[in-house]
Nucleic acid binder design. Structure first.
Lengths: 232, 232
DNA sequence: CGCAGCCTTGACAAATGTCAACAAACGTGG
DNA sequence: CCACGTTTGTTGACATTTGTCAAGGCTGCG
């Protein structure tokens, strides 16, 4: 593994505090691979043989049932996924596929569990990571149960806007059909939802979004830190 | 604290493996209290001062936004809640209220965090617990995004039936309005959903449910271990 | 250029929510 | 134990939201 990537992984909250010896031991069994777009990395129901770390590119976590499917989340560099399944040695609840050309590190789940038992700093870091993940999903569930699709879109746009700080415009990172799925609606409904937000100053041009008056949109969206803030 | 309760708590997966010394230390700062029904134990947005353990009775976790509210989960004895907020020392994402007369143990969050740093068995148990919680919410989210309300109800009934093993009947544990909220629909919609399941042999009499032909209901509900099994 | 996939739009259908009325169940105080 | 009022559950009529299907436009790419 190239030094730069080794250091990128070491810098992750999950690994930064653990003993050198244990980190090295984890990395010995790990390997890094380049995947083209649209490759399925894991399948729901399958055992989770590897903890995955996205080094570059992006990964879609999705699920299927009875012929329907839905995007659950997007994983961006540098972060991990399938941590919970790895720890519990349980089947994956979600499938994962690359959205674009991506570089992924794979650490054998068995190694993760072994080091988890040996290194309490690592165990503690995993707790923090899992607590974070748990709270993110709770927020997503509140978003789904308490808001209409129009409200979800409005708040999503405001969250994206916060990342592009200062600017009143930003780019949608991915296809609208996938955004629709993430927000729990159909592409057609998303198309109409964008139009429904025009009165609040939202303009769409392809994947380019402009928000004329953030305060106006906020009056409609009523963003709430207990649903929309990533950090808390 | 009565010995019986002390032992009940000790038997929880979360505490069973930790050092005696640390468990005793945790319990020293803890106290147990009886609450009547409908008491709000925690409020979303407030700091989480105590890890809560339901010893008897039951607790509703719910959230509000913009005048709407929704039940997120029910906590039954003997188990804990607000673990993630306690560990992260972050505000609660959900409010909690007793559904009936309940006995609750409260452990100061600061003590939990202190012992968490001292006792790696405890830290590991917390990881397992959090991973379990995380996976439960993911399942709930898949249920919400992939199924209609009729399908959610059908699968809910089948899950309950599995607990009352053998029998073709069981009691709804709580009010229908709350079940509706848990399932993400209105009470009126739930009422009609029950009627919609009559063709599949579901009969309702007050809070008493009878399922004539489990196999028939399953053909409609298509239960899936990756959504409906509690253990995996 | 032509194909394939995505986005949009319109017309329509299905699912779900809202409101109002009433019935049934529950709890309380006489 | 009963009478009363409150809450919960049910039902009907209707509105809103969301999904489905089909068609057409746009875009990117071989």
């Amino acid at each position: 593994m190239p030094d730069a990537e080794y250091r990128d992984i070491r810098k992750l909250d999950l690994f930064s505090q653990m003993a050198d010896e244990h980190f090295t031991s984890l990395m010995r069994g790990a390997y890094v691979q380049n995947f083209p777009a649209q490759i399925e990395l894991t399948t729901e129901g399958e055992p989770s043989d590897f903890l995955h770390i996205v080094l570059s590119g992006s990964v879609d976590l999705f699920s299927e049932w009875n012929g329907r499917d839905t995007s659950m989340a997007t994983v961006r560099p540098v972060s991990t996924f399938i941590l919970a399944a790895t720890i519990k040695d349980a089947p994956n609840l979600m499938s994962a596929r690359t959205l674009e050309k991506s570089r992924i590190a794979l650490i054998p789940s068995q190694d993760v569990r072994t080091i988890f038992d040996l290194d309490s700093s690592f165990a503690r870091a995993i707790v923090t990571e899992l607590a974070q993940c748990y709270r993110s999903v709770i927020k997503a569930q509140k978003d789904l149960k308490l808001r209409t699709s129009l409200e979800r879109l409005a708040n999503y746009l405001l969250r994206q806007l916060k990342h592009a700080d200062g600017s009143a415009t930003f780019e949608l990172g991915f296809e609208k059909r996938r955004l629709a799925s993430v927000l729990g609606m159909t592409p057609e409904n998303l198309s109409r939802a964008f139009k429904g937000l025009q009165p609040y100053g939202v303009a769409v041009n392809g994947t380019h979004i402009t928000i004329d008056d953030q305060a106006d949109l906020e009056r409609f969206a009523k963003p709430n830190p207990l649903i929309d803030d990533f950090s808390t």
